[in-house]
Amino acid sequence: MSVLIIIDAAEGSIKKSAFEALSYGADLAAQLGVTATGVALGKTEGDLSALGQYGVNKIVQVNGDQARSDDPSVLASLLTALVTREQATVVVFSHSLAGKAIAPLLSAKCKAGLVTGAVGLPTTENGFVVKRSVFSGKAFAHVRIDSALKLISINPNSYKINTGGSAATVESVLLTAAAPRITITKKQKSSNELLLTEAETVVSAGRGMKGPENWGMIEELANVMGAATACSRPVADAHWRPHNEHVGQTGIAIAPTLYIAIGISGAIQHLAGVNRSKVIVVINKDPEAPFFKAADYGIVGDAFEVVPAFTAAVKKLKGV
């Protein structure tokens, strides 16, 4: 019996969300008294046995062209075979782009109950119950999975990463799956910047910045903090900033450790995308801005004065 953890990798490079999933899966396997097995689809950079530090016992590397497929149905079909081979009772995914594509396909193929957006380990006293985020971060639901095989995808930045585990054994396997039906004709990388969903710190700005030409100070603050940049919906809609920076109800939802909102009023649709942040700092010249109600720290003041001072104070703290 085992818990399988699907290792999230982008072009071979293993992502932080995978370290969280491996830690979650290892702790769950310990709780259930079964083996924790990481699954690497296709080639990945680095020494896979080192992933044992997150607490997993074993890594299965799935080789062959199909394991590198761009068609999620092919990957789900490989995982269906692996579930049987490894006698899996739980499969853990990251609730990332890949997880969102593959997990529901596997759920349908195996008739296995799926809980997406999980934020904690299951409890097993009254059935297998997983806590997940619902209503765009405004509430949680406890969801019981009734099928024998259980699928969980965990929200980014919601589980503590383990350290200090011993090296995992690595096993290579070759599995066969159905042929792909999707052909990729073009790939476009927008940038190699820090991924918003993975960033520990996010500096976000809104209409209060008055125009795209004023983003230099936002980028500078983000730069000294090692943060990703984000924006509110009106800013993305006005094309001041690219759409992939838009956080909120219709943009992306994030849960960084520190979220700094500058010149954003904090409409409920914006809060829906950021309310899982651990600490929220709001800088706004309007003391009535609704965002202050959701904030931990606030400065009522002019962004054009506060932001450069903020950057200088962070530089001073970091000694740069």
Binding site: A112, G113, V115, K138, A139, A141, F292, G298
Partner: peptide
């Protein structure tokens, strides 16, 4: 295959500390 057993609201924020 799944059922919601309970909902839960997140703890209320302690309130903003203004600087």
């Amino acid at each position: 295959l799944t059922s919601v057993t309970a909902f839960e609201l997140p703890p209320a924020k302690a309130g903003v500390k203004l600087i």
